[in-house]
Write a protein that binds this DNA or RNA. Structure first.
Lengths: 136, 136
DNA sequence: TTAATCCTTAGAGTTAACTCGAGGTCAAGC
DNA sequence: GCTTGACCTCGAGTTAACTCTAAGGATTAA
């Protein structure tokens, strides 16, 4: 017999709330989770892995409705393999763009750290007044 | 005389809508933008730079209300230099964490690209059935 | 001078993703 | 048998960040 987990155990493991997990279920992201006759959800190890993939997609900015489309493809069998592959290739491009964006952000933040360090040492922001760049 | 820009010019430049810019103004993010006697906003080059900083902070996930606190500090003068410096140092840590997270995401996405490429070549997902990892 | 194209304001509507409360079920321990 | 605590559903409420509408004023081009 495979070990199963309760919704609160899964919530703790994935750093989500039970509310959020039930919300995901309501939105159709967890059709694979089985139930006791009483209705209580029984999460298998593989369900937790699936939820990690869902979290991964979410962290790329994919809306829940689109994630549901992917989950539906998973239930639909092999003839959706191409769509699923294409989806991940597209996600890869998205994440690459996000990484680039985030690196630019980091550059500006670093610049501002420098800017304020200099100003702080001088005791005034005026130290940057004659500088065409970075005054704000 | 310094060249000024209309709200729609700025919107185009920053890839925002005029609605969004007016919303930011309403939320207090743009106290520095001057007006014609008729009320029309006149954006200076430095205002656009300031908006780029705002966009940068926003892209780190900072909520608009917190950005407003920073903007207020900027108006308050040199005695808020320490706070502003601390804020950027903290943002730097946030962005570093985001980069780490995004790199993990990229790893999983790459793994899934591989997974589906293999499945696609085999014509079936069953190829991964005996594989403890990655079945979904 | 008249129309088009900006701009203004206040405030209502939208969307996504939760977040929670009410009311009920179920299983374990005293 | 009764209490406790964790589970369930349904549906309403919340929040952030827009997004837009309505009503009207200013500016420009033919």
């Amino acid at each position: 017999m495979l070990k199963t987990y309760s919704i609160s155990e899964v919530a703790k493991e994935l750093n989500l709330t039970v509310y959020t997990l039930r919300y995901y279920d309501k939105e159709g992201l967890m059709p694979f989770v089985e139930r006791k006759p009483s209705g209580t959800r029984l999460f298998k190890e593989s369900d937790i892995e699936a939820l990690k993939v869902i979290e991964c997609l979410k962290s790329t900015g994919m809306p829940i409705k689109e994630i549901k489309v992917f989950i539906d493809w998973c239930s639909d069998g092999d003839f959706t393999l191409q769509q699923r592959y294409d989806m991940f290739v597209e996600r890869k491009a998205v994440v690459e763009a996000q990484l680039e964006e985030l690196n630019k952000t980091m550059e500006l933040i670093n610049h501002k750290c420098q800017y304020y360090k200099t100003a702080l040492d001088a005791g005034t922001e005026d130290i940057h007044k004659n500088n065409k760049i970075g005054s704000f």
